[in-house]
Structure formats: C-alpha cells, structure tokens
Design a protein around this nucleic acid. Structure first.
Length: 296
DNA sequence: TTAAATTCCTGTAAGC
DNA sequence: TGCTTACAGGAATTTA
C-alpha cells in the first residue's frame, strides 16, 4: 500500500516525464474516482492545462498545472499511476486516462479543428493512466486553497522527513493525544505520510510499544521516534518502496523495501533482535506487529 | 473534543 | 476441485 516512500518514488519517476507536457484530454472510465469538482466539470477543466511541477505531500501526489490549479492524486490502497504508450492495452480497473502531448513534436497529436475527425497525427504523445482495483484512491482538481476549503483534502501535519521536523515538534504532538502511539502516527493531521507499514517499522526501530499512550511518552523517546521515522522512511525511499501488496512504481516495477522489513507482516516469526516470536494486535483498526520484549 | 467504530472495495488465501 | 468466508487497510464519516 502506498505510503510516503512509495508516493515519493512515483512522484520522482513521473516528474521528468510530465513536467512541460500539456494534458490534451481526460477519459474517465469510472467517474466516481474524481471527488472534486464534478466529473463532467473535471474533464472540461483539466483539458489544455500544462504541467509545471510534480510534488508529494504526505501520501498525495500534487501535479502542479498552470492557472494555479493542482491535479491531486491519492492512491488509496491499490492505486497505480503509470506512463504508457497509447497503444498499450488498457488494463482492468483503469479509471482515468490522461492524453499528454509530445514535447518534441510541436503539433498536438489530436487537433481541435472541426472536420478533421479521425485524422490522428503521429507521433502520439504518452498517456498517464490511473488504475485502482480497490477504488480507495481519489483524484481532485482545484487550487490548493479550494481543495482545503471544500474539505476534499485535509490539513496535513508536518513531513517526518523534513529536516525542520524536530523531536520537540513530535513530542508536542504526542503530548496532545491520549490515543495509542501508533494511532497518532497514522493520523495524517498529526504527521503526514506514515501508514501501517512504516508506523510498525519505526516503532520497532525506536523500541517503543505501539499501544503506549502517546501522552506518556518521554522527550527522549520522542527524539528516538523522530530519528526512527526518518531512518525507516529514507531507507524505504532508497529501496524504491515496499511492494507488499500491489504497489508498483510508475513503470510497473516492484520496490525492494519489502525484503528488509523488520516487523510488518511478520507476526509469529522471530524478532531479528531477540529471536522471540513477534506479537500481533489491532490498533486503530490496523494489524500491528511488534516485539513484546524489545519494544517497551 | 477526542477516540473508536463503521464504511467503502476487490483480490487473495484459508477453510471446508 | 470449487465454493464460501475472512482479511488486507487509508481516510471520510458516523457513533460514543
């Protein structure tokens, strides 16, 4: 499932192939995947806009367009964004297809001139396709302010890999909450980008029990957790993310981080530190794996 | 106000 | 072998 490292990988892969191109048209095969504005309006508005940037914020991919608009994509559980040749057969569960102009060509592959129906110029540009079997993902379009105002995008917390994200900031965030430590890590308004995999991995690395009440964490523990979050996430980015489920990068390739995960998905298997079997419990509705001996 | 439970959705795997 | 059932979970929404 795409979390911060997976989304970062996809955004970095897409960036050089999207920036400078213009979205010629959009086909929605499953219109409900667009949550803002109405799907009909969405396809009208997005056509003709030029891509100026590709960024990540939390688990969101922000595709900056001209006229201050942002095309926002959240991959949910099983969302995939890929750049493909238009002749590639459309995979099942493909919900949106964006036709992009070819940056070399000059002339767009499909003109607006009437009376020229069916005349497809070559070379064709590429297509950006959104596929999402479980349909937990979403696509939005608007200015950032509009999207926050419309409450289709939350006010996200700080980025855990931001150099300015301090131990004190994390400590202050934890002090405000009586929920279990892990529940706070998963809360995107407290901290942006952490999901089930990296919450478990970071807590293991920081040697902290996931069910500890966040409020009762010491400043020293918070500092350890801040470092653990940063290390877990940056290692995963270097490994191009975890393909534990259906995650694939912009080229359809698997990441490598699943090979080195310490606890996620390893309930009952031996702890790499002490050798005792890893425990499992449910916190905030999520399966949580940890070591009773190494995490206190 | 905060926290927990519920809901959405389908592919996968376990169980009979 | 083939069917049914449970499970996976991000985040909006609802309930407590």
């Amino acid at each position: 499932m795409p979390e911060l490292p997976e989304v970062e990988t996809i955004a970095a892969d897409l960036r050089p192939h999207l920036v400078g191109r213009t979205i010629l048209r959009c086909e929605l095969r499953f219109p409900a995947i667009v949550r803002h504005p109405e799907p009909e309006q969405f396809v009208d508005l997005v056509a003709g806009l030029r891509i100026e940037s590709v960024k990540r914020r939390g688990k969101y991919i922000l595709i900056g367009l001209d006229q201050d608009r942002v095309l926002v994509v959240h991959l949910g559980m099983t969302g995939q964004l890929r750049i493909v040749d238009p002749t590639t057969p459309v995979a099942g569960h493909t919900h949106a297809i964006f036709d992009l102009d070819t940056s070399e060509g000059g002339l767009p592959p499909q003109g607006d001139a009437p009376g020229k129906a069916g005349s497809r110029r070559t070379p064709l540009g590429k297509q950006l396709r959104y596929r999402d079997p479980r349909r937990f993902g979403r696509i939005l379009l608007g200015t950032e302010a509009d999207l926050l105002l419309a409450r289709v995008m939350p006010h996200l917390g700080p980025e855990p890999i931001d150099p300015d994200f301090s131990a004190d900031a994390l400590y202050a965030a934890l002090r405000r909450r009586k929920a279990p430590l892990k529940a706070v890590l998963l809360d995107q308004k407290a901290l942006a980008g952490v999901g089930n995999i990296y919450a478990d991995e970071s807590l293991y690395r920081a040697r902290l029990r996931p069910d500890r009440v966040a409020q009762r964490i010491s400043r020293a523990s918070a500092a350890r957790l801040r470092d653990a979050l940063r290390e877990s996430l940056e290692l995963a980015i270097r490994n191009r993310g975890s393909s534990v489920d259906s995650y694939r990068d912009a080229w359809g390739e698997r990441g490598g981080q699943q090979e080195v995960l310490q606890v996620y998905g390893r309930a009952g298997e031996p702890c790499f530190t002490c050798g005792r079997p890893l425990a499992s419990m449910r916190i905030a509705g999520r399966t949580t794996v940890f070591c009773r001996h190494c995490q206190r």
